[in-house]
Simulated assay, not measured.
Amino acid sequence: MLLTFEVIAEALRERINSGGLMPGDALPTQAMLMAEFGASSLSVQKAMALLKQGGYAVSRPGKGAFVARGDTDTDVDPDNTGVGNAPVGGIAARVEALELALAQTLDQLTALQSRVEVVEGGTVGPTH
């Protein structure tokens, strides 16, 4: 059984692969995806991270997330402004997805350390 974020990512991949969403098209907003799938913001963020990691999407600060182009290293400029073109489907998308995953892992480790401290009845310090 797929987790909510995997369901969201798969649905968007299918829309992209079927041509329902084309390279350069804006992806649905976080609020739209939360409403459509009855999902939390974290689930939507994880789904977007999967899409970026897989080269399906790219973020543009202040503009949102867009379908990546798989055949080139430059993104489509839907506003035709010549501003904000970003590399897609490659290193930039993967770095962003990995940074998000790393931050989430750090949060999980911190929570786990807190639980261990409670169970042990003491403090567990860093092992430097």
Rank of each mutant, 00 (worst) to 15 (best):
R69F: 04
L21G: 03
P78Y: 02
S59H: 09
R13W: 03
P23N: 05
L27M: 10
L50G: 00
T81A: 06
E99C: 09
V76Q: 07
N17E: 09
R15F: 00
T123S: 11
T74G: 00
L21E: 02
T81D: 08
G90M: 08
A11S: 13
E117F: 01
V58D: 00
V95N: 12
V44I: 08
V118M: 07
V58R: 09
G70H: 11
L106F: 07
T74Q: 14
A97Y: 01
M34P: 01
T110M: 10
G70M: 11
S18L: 08
G20E: 13
L51S: 02
L27W: 04
P28H: 06
F66P: 00
I16V: 11
T110I: 14
I16Y: 05
F66N: 05
G70L: 06
D77L: 01
T4M: 10
Q113N: 09
A9G: 05
L27P: 04
G19K: 08
A11W: 11
E14V: 14
A31E: 14
S114G: 09
S43A: 15
E6M: 12
M32A: 15
A97H: 06
L51P: 02
G82Q: 06
L33Q: 06
G89E: 04
N17H: 10
K63F: 12
V44W: 03
L109M: 12
G125Y: 03
L112V: 07
I8C: 02
V83N: 10
G55D: 04
V119S: 04
A101N: 11
Q53G: 07
S59C: 05
L42V: 13
Q53K: 15
L50P: 00
L3K: 15
V7R: 13
T4V: 13
D25P: 07
V95K: 15
V58Q: 06
G64Y: 01
E117H: 02
T105V: 10
Q30A: 10
L50E: 12
T123Y: 02
D25A: 13
E99T: 09
L112Y: 12
L50R: 10
A97S: 10
A65E: 11
G24K: 08
S41I: 05
V58C: 00
S18C: 01
N80T: 05
P87Y: 07
M48R: 14
M32E: 15
R15V: 04
G70K: 15
P87L: 10
P126R: 15
L2E: 05
Q104G: 06
I16M: 05
A26I: 03
K63E: 12
D75T: 15
V44A: 02
P23F: 09
G62M: 05
S114W: 01
V67D: 01
A35T: 13
R115S: 09
S18T: 13
D75R: 12
A92L: 13
T123H: 14
E6N: 08
G19Q: 04
Q108V: 12
Q30P: 00
V76Y: 13
K46Q: 14
G125V: 10
K52C: 11
T105K: 14
S18K: 11
L100R: 15
P126K: 14
A39R: 04
A11V: 10
